[in-house]
Amino acid sequence: MRSDFFKLPRIDELLSPRGFLKRAAVLTVVFAVFHVAGLREMTSFLCGMAPMTGGAAKLSALMGLGYVVSYLGFIVIVPILVIASALLLVSSRIWPVKPRV
């Protein structure tokens, strides 16, 4: 494991095309894991019903909430990050940022 794994990303790295795509990839992987794990079935908490009965009720609702958050990340945030990264790439080609002297 790289030693800088837990370091906060620098702002210029975060707001770069590569930074956007990295975050999009992470969100995609998280959603894929939750989806494959079958957590979509746990989203009935949205209608006010615990997805499972007994002691597992609260945990299953939490898992459902996790699924919804990851789903919104994948459906809403990922495309925005991808489009933004494309826009950044195009704009940097057209109007390159001049390095400070």
Binding site: D12, F20, L87, L88, S92
Partner: peptide, 14 residues
């Protein structure tokens, strides 16, 4: 200027 450009890109993409 790069950060401003990135934020504008994010806003437009949104």
């Amino acid at each position: 200027r790069g950060a401003v450009r990135a934020l504008i890109a994010l806003g437009s993409a949104t």
